[in-house]
Simulated scan of single mutants.
Amino acid sequence: MSWFEECIHPEIRQSIRVDKPIFEGETDFQTVSLFDNNLLGRVLVLDDAVQITQFDEHIYSEIMVHIPMVSHPDAKNVLIIGAGDGTVLREVLKHETLLQVTMVEIDGALVKLCREHLSDILQGAFDDPRLDLVIDDGAKYLQESHREFDVIIIDSTDPDDNSTALFTDEFYIKCKARLAKGGIMVAQAGCPAYQPSIRTHMSERMQAHFRYGGFYHAAVPTYIGGLHAFSWASDTLDLNAIAEQGNDTMRSIPKTRYYTSRSHKAAFYMEPAAG
């Protein structure tokens, strides 16, 4: 019997028992580990940090995706940067208004591994004809692209050597330039209790470039600290106000396990523990 140990804070660690190893190796960009745990199901680890587990990945992906997609009145074109495991893509594809989703992931080998080992979770997402999969650096893609998107979703790892370019003023300005009128940008913002610097960065850097901005949260049991933050920004739409008023368009989304009109509204009321 072996255990995987995760540490995102020097004073906090958690361990997950490895009941069945599936894959262990390196791509050109990161170390990858896949294993099964009897409680959590299949677990994906990148650079010693848990990314998703079969047990609760739907909480993260559904809240990250459906809040901006439901808040936008007619999201037809969506850009995903990162999210190589494919679960965010799966949720975007549930929206009937969607015409095309462009997914830009730097690590093609990761996508291949996830298609092979997470097929039960992905439900054929990478085979959907509305997908334009681009294996490239997200910041580079935004620099060279002239397309406009209704929703931009940044599902990067926490700031590291591979994702530093996704945490700069230059990157946020590029995102703003690629948003269509009425567009919304969202980005994962880490654990507010143990990673307060990410929240501060998003508030002072990402949101500062837009008229409206803020955070919403979800409780994801597997993630250290429990509560996970998402940063949002828009020049046109106030997601806080939309959540307060309520929005019934979520009825058009099939087969959500966590996301509802109630969890949508609740996400804006969850407050992080003091850092």
Rank of each mutant, 00 (worst) to 15 (best):
K76S: 09
C191P: 09
L39A: 11
S197Y: 12
A139R: 12
M69N: 01
I135G: 03
D150M: 10
I173L: 10
V134H: 08
V104N: 13
R251F: 10
F215W: 01
T249A: 13
F4N: 05
V104I: 11
V18D: 13
T87Y: 04
F29Y: 15
Y269H: 14
Y258C: 09
T27Y: 06
L34A: 07
L133H: 13
A189R: 03
S145I: 03
D120K: 12
A187Q: 06
K174Q: 15
L98F: 05
L46E: 06
T164K: 10
C114V: 05
G25W: 13
A233R: 02
R42A: 10
E26F: 13
R17H: 15
M206H: 00
G84C: 11
C7D: 08
H146C: 12
D137F: 00
D238K: 06
P68W: 07
V18L: 13
L142H: 04
A49N: 06
F149K: 02
C7I: 14
P272Q: 05
L113W: 03
A267L: 03
R13Q: 15
A139E: 07
H66C: 02
K76T: 10
I106R: 04
G86V: 14
F171C: 11
Q30L: 06
Y194A: 06
M250T: 05
I121V: 15
H264D: 12
I153P: 03
F215M: 11
S15P: 08
P221H: 14
L227P: 12
K174F: 09
M103R: 00
Y258T: 02
G82W: 07
V111L: 03
S145M: 01
Q100F: 10
L113S: 10
S71I: 14
V104L: 10
A125P: 00
K140C: 09
L166R: 10
G108W: 09
A243M: 05
H58T: 09
F35H: 06
N37M: 05
I242K: 00
Y259T: 13
D56V: 07
Q30H: 08
R13E: 14
V186K: 00
Q188N: 01
I12N: 00
T102W: 02
Y60D: 13
V32R: 02
L133D: 09
K94L: 09
T164N: 06
L40K: 00
S261F: 03
V32E: 08
V18A: 02
Q143C: 08
L118E: 06
L166H: 08
I153M: 07
S261W: 02
L133E: 14
Q30F: 04
